[in-house]
Design a protein around this nucleic acid. Sequence first.
DNA 1: TTACCTGCAAACGTTTTGCAACTGA
DNA 2: TCAGTTGCAAAACGTTTGCAGGTAA
Lengths: 143, 143
Amino acid sequence: MHQHSEASAIAALRKKGYKATPQRITICRYILNSRDHPSAQQVYHEVKKMHPTVSLATVYKTLGVLKDLNLTQELSLPQGQARFDSYMKPHINLVCLQCGSIIDLDDTTAIEITRRVAAAARFKPNAQRIDIFGICEKCNATE
Amino acid sequence: MHQHSEASAIAALRKKGYKATPQRITICRYILNSRDHPSAQQVYHEVKKMHPTVSLATVYKTLGVLKDLNLTQELSLPQGQARFDSYMKPHINLVCLQCGSIIDLDDTTAIEITRRVAAAARFKPNAQRIDIFGICEKCNATE
DNA sequence: TTACCTGCAAACGTTTTGCAACTGA
DNA sequence: TCAGTTGCAAAACGTTTGCAGGTAA
């Protein structure tokens, strides 16, 4: 699902004039290979394992860089922190209101929708996001 | 588009045991009749014209009540404040990255998508949101 | 009458910023 | 070498909360 290797992340950074620092590489590796849409705090705690002195500021700055490189998307949700999604193909986010998990769901509608909109309204689309809020399979079972 | 009258808002409040205070009525009237997806700050400044002593806390609390009554939806966006949408029919939000405007677009896809998802993943949907980020017609023209 | 609401101020959590020291290219 | 980066601390921001006084029903 997340097809970016470490080497391609480094190349992407350098291509746009960003330095490939150890902290950034660690952050990229974590984000680009995680499927669970981590928050900045989660990234921070994870990266600290390799770089104990890393700061939250660096995490936020790097997340900004990754957005600029189009390697991640920011999912801002009501009540609380943003979550980061490195699955950049148009898709649907299934957001569980109980456990907070976010599942990426491929669906042809997600791709189609932008095309339709560009045609219907005179709107120049850049990015998209489809969220469906509800109760996930796991929470539904344990209820 | 926004079909709620003041009387029906008062009825909705009372039905769930909320008091219909003057502040709440003013906030409801403003939110339910605005098409421009105001932020809490905008609501606050607007309501202040009628109730100069109203507090931001009351605005936030009332916005919470309106969410509970299913009369508004909170649109949290990257970089900044949440915006509030009183158009509750499934639709697409066209979010302009330049001027910040949000346009509601009716599209059959918006309704269809939840049905498909409920079937595809074993997910119990509650609410949905479709955002397309880009440049609106107006900004595109003045560019 | 009373449970609920208001408005103030303080608290909270996330994100951003300024800056001196450091470092990748 | 030097533009860009780090990490710290402080600031900024939107939002929430506790509470004493006030008000709708």
